[in-house]
Design a protein around this nucleic acid. Structure first.
Ligand SMILES: Cc1cn([C@H]2C[C@H](O)[C@@H](COP(=O)(O)OP(=O)(O)OP(=O)(O)O)O2)c(=O)[nH]c1=O
Length: 688
DNA sequence: GGGCAACGTTGTT
DNA sequence: TTCCAAACAACGTTGCCC
């Protein structure tokens, strides 16, 4: 995720020790503070600038330094083990290259800062102060926001299933660890660490596989409890949630910390999972607070302006969600290490980091953030994808086989999610660890393995052309610009509000009928409407027929079939016209039955004038389809019978979406100076 | 200059 | 010897169209 729209930003450090602190667990402290701050690496090869080395060390060690459970670990030793294990590998080389790029950018930042400081910054200063003032005036300290985070979630679930894991150092994952038990953390083991490094740190480390069904089930149990505290709570991933306990505390005449304490006890007793909690006036603050007494603890940041500001002041910027390794490095270069450092630099933030980041930083400095907690409606998924790592792979045939397998896997995921995509993205990681992506718009939403394969093959071919001897270690496919495929069954779709549980929407669907993505709505609406009218369907005040659920569904199904057939015909026609082109010619889509709509109200489509489910999103999707149908027809009409375009993506074609050629040089990632200047010019344009 | 598509990056879990 | 993940969101930049 990225910082600006992220739900979380502000942060602070454990200054004001609140009385809400719970008994902390184990982990005796030897070196209380190996955390935060930029790491300046120990023994690394020479001959690079120290800037670069620090950047590289920081990259390699990065994640291990921000996690909890590391307090009793000798960081120097851990760092040395990690660096030793890394040296000489392709992975290391790639990291070094990236670090070099970062070092260059950091140097440019510093130069730029020096230049700026010689200029008149009064306008920037005024803008920053105005922004701060407006933020301050909107500060809301009235809510009781709680962030909950299960401790070592995957590991905790694993230990519940297999009690022999209890109390021993073990980790969840394969070649890379997803997480590990707190016992393992004492050795310096942590999330995102390669397993072979973890084994060096902790030879007795036991490894267990991931088990998502169990995680999902356990998350469901926990959420059932959370719901009783705040029916409007917001899950954020499987193991995290935000709650607004303002009402609960009022209704039950209980303090925030007591309520949270009670909640945590309930979850522990009923679900066997310990959770940590943060209590504060905003979501970002609550999240930060939650990390203070992890594991199995809670912490409250008092809701006064003074307490919040004080807490933020000493907090490493790295603790703020949205500030990662790179931004931390850049901020460090301009003298910003803790949140209090942001203020003196406020006039420089926009010119140095851009409008969005500047605002984000100022907001964090004040400890201001989101106070409204609400579940997402489950329809906001932006992409569905799958990818896999394997031993270096090369050769046309092998790559195609892998591509096909990936397309098959993606079809499964698309079915699960009940969506189609209008853009397909191919991702490849070279044997050097360099990552490349290629993407194309498809206009007609796709989801079948055959369509996905056909669309992605040309992208692979392109890569093969661009990179002779293409050798990869990862291949992935992802669909974006999603369109809802299942026409409901899930009451949520047409608005009949259901329990706000996102998980259900993606997991409960087993029935093929439910999963079967809908085929686009029909062209000649007349068909079913006329039929319906004749068969005496009642009509509402606007003249639209009111259909009983079942009939509506049947009619919708029929419409979709007709529509699909027409689309198929059109696309086949096109296909034939530019014959050859070898390749797998799978049918566009095999007609599958779709679950019917269970809605009776309907709106008219402005294009085809046919009734559509009374749902804004559904209607918009329908309109898109209507428009795309028109476009296809236009293309078909405009292409001379025997002179087809040299190469048209089959289902992809509308003039507007014909891919634009843009041979982009693939540079090592560093930004040229002129680019930098330009971007700054753009950045300055914003603020105000 | 806006809008949009493509691509690379950063960040989070 | 083996030898650094997967899934997702958001943003900045670039190039092109209108
Ligand atoms: C950080 C991280 C987490 N995960 C998974 C495994 C975690 O159990 C789950 C939740 O992540 P986190 O809540 O970040 O971490 P955690 O619950 O394992 O441990 P703790 O909060 O006590 O420090 O997400 C990954 O798969 N990859 C990652 O890089």
């Amino acid at each position: 995720m990225d910082r600006r729209l992220s739900d979380d930003e502000n942060g602070a450090r454990d200054v004001s020790q609140s009385p809400t602190t719970e008994p902390k667990q184990d982990i005796d402290t030897v070196k209380p503070e190996a955390d935060e701050g930029i790491v300046t690496g120990p023994a690394v090869p020479a001959q690079a600038s120290t800037e670069q080395l620090n950047a590289l060390t920081h990259r390699l060690l990065g994640p291990s330094l921000t996690k909890s459970g590391q307090e009793g670990v000798s960081q120097d030793n851990v760092s040395q083990v990690i660096l030793d294990a890394s040296k000489g590998s392709k992975f290391y080389e790639r990291e070094a290259a990236l670090a070099a790029g970062l070092a260059t950018r950091v140097a440019a930042l510093q130069t730029r800062k020096a230049k700026l400081e010689a200029q008149d910054l009064r306008v920037h200063l005024r803008n920053a102060d105005a922004f701060l003032a407006s933020l301050e005036s909107s500060r809301d300290l009235s809510r009781i926001i709680v962030h909950l985070d299960c401790d070592a979630f995957y590991a905790a679930v694993a230990a519940l299933k297999d009690p022999t894991l209890k109390g021993i150092p073990f980790a969840v994952g394969g070649s890379v660890l997803s997480t590990c038990s707190y016992e393992a953390r004492k050795f310096g083991v942590r999330s995102a660490m390669p397993a072979f490094v973890a084994r060096k740190l902790c030879p007795e480390l036991k490894l267990v596989d991931q088990d998502f069904p169990s995680y999902i089930a356990k998350a469901g149990e926990i959420r059932a409890i959370l719901q009783t505290y705040d029916p409007n709570f917001q899950p954020a991933g499987l193991d995290e949630s935000y709650l607004d306990l303002t009402a609960y505390c009022q209704d039950n005449d209980i303090s925030a910390s007591d309520a949270v304490s009670k909640l945590r006890t309930e979850v522990r007793e009923k679900c066997g999972i310990t959770i940590s909690a943060g209590i504060a006036a905003t979501a970002p603050l609550a999240k930060i607070a939650g990390n203070v007494n992890k594991p199995d603890g809670q912490f409250e940041i008092p809701s006064t302006r003074e307490a919040v500001m004080a807490y933020m002041a000493d907090l490493s910027v790295r603790k703020v969600a949205g500030i990662g390794r790179v931004l931390q490095c850049e901020l460090d270069a301009v003298g910003i290490r803790v949140c209090a450092d942001i203020y003196p630099q406020r006039a420089l933030l926009v010119p140095l980091f851009g409008d969005k980041t500047a605002k984000f930083l100022l907001t964090s400095y004040l400890g201001i953030g989101r106070t409204r907690i609400a579940p997402s409606d489950g329809r906001d998924r932006k992409s569905v994808g799958t990818e896999g790592t394997f031993a270096d792979l090369a050769g046309a045939q092998a790559l195609r086989t892998k591509l096909r397998q990936t397309a098959e896997a993606l079809e499964e995921d698309m079915k699960q999610a009940g969506v189609k995509g209008r853009t397909v993205v191919l991702k490849v990681k070279l044997h050097t660890f360099e990552v490349l992506t290629r993407q194309v718009g498809t206009h007609i939403p796709v989801w079948t393995k055959d369509d996905i394969y056909r669309i992605s093959l040309p992208m692979l071919e392109r890569l093969e052309k661009e990179i002779p001897g293409l050798k990869i270690r990862l291949l992935g496919l992802r669909c974006t610009h999603l369109v809802e495929a299942k026409l409901s069954v899930d009451k949520n779709f047409f608005g009949a509000a259901k329990a706000p549980n996102t998980e259900e929407r993606f997991c409960v669907c087993q029935d093929d009928q439910i999963l079967a993505p809908a085929v686009p709505p029909p062209e000649r609406a007349s068909a079913h409407r006329a039929e319906g009218s004749r068969s005496g369907v009642p009509v509402d005040e606007d003249g639209w027929e009111i259909w009983p659920e079942a009939e509506f569904e049947a009619a919708a199904e029929q419409e979709r079939k007709e529509e699909f057939e027409e689309l198929l015909k059109l696309s086949q026609e096109l296909e034939e016209r530019h014959d050859q082109d070898n390749g797998a010619k799978a049918p566009l889509e095999s007609s599958r039955s779709t679950s019917p709509a269970d809605d009776v109200e309907s709106w008219a489509c402005p294009i085809c004038n046919r009734p559509q489910p009374a749902d804004e999103r559904a209607l918009n999707e329908h309109i898109d389809l209507c428009l795309s149908r028109e476009t296809i027809r236009e293309v078909v009409r405009s292409v001379p019978e025997n002179k087809a375009p040299a190469k048209l993506e089959k289902p992809t074609l509308p003039s507007k979406q014909v891919p634009r050629k843009r041979a982009r040089p693939r540079g090592g990632g560093s930004i040229s100076k002129s680019n930098h200047e330009q971007s700054n010019a753009k950045r300055r344009a914003f603020f105000s």
